[in-house]
Amino acid sequence: MANDKSNMQLVANGILNENPIFRLVLSMCPAVGISTTVMNGIMLGLAVLFVQVFSSVTISLFKNKIHPRIRIPSYTLTIATWVTVIDLVMAAYMPGPYSQMGVFIKLIVAFAIITMRLEMFACKESVNASFWDGVGMGLGFMAGMMAIGLVRELLGLGTILGFEVLGGVRPLLFFVLPCAGFFVVGLMMAFFNYIEIRYRKLKQVAS
């Protein structure tokens, strides 16, 4: 399966058409559990971006050397290695954010989105295409996490990125609790689907 998309199309594909959270519905645990603030979304998004890009490139480089029967263990090993690397680097050079995010960084090993992209894309495509697909998926994940985080932080804590924007008012504390994550993710998914339906109808009318 040769890939006929340009690099920018691959990136856009990851952010919009195949957004990991809203369209592929993968990696829902972090989307529900950790997206309580925008900052969390950015930090975890960066970590996932790094792991996704490096894992995709690694697998794409070695795709002919990986025995088909041990694909999944090889992917897991690759992901685990890069997660450990970013975990150590963050612990050493970004102690502030790491003290909040440390527990979740290690969990990236189990994120479905990364294994899925390796299996669906990186093991078939060229290194260049895999790199851009990884960037797209990572950015898409980060955008999704930030969007959810924005709603939850604003409604739950009355702040954005830690700055008070509602004058100390906390509209609905419920939104920072784990259960609210399901509501926010569900509503946003519905919104994305609605836009897609409208877009298709418009296209039909136009043609």
Partner: peptide, 8 residues
């Protein structure tokens, strides 16, 4: 399989 896994 053994050799490749070990190397990786």
């Amino acid at each position: 399989i053994i050799i490749r896994l070990t190397v990786s």
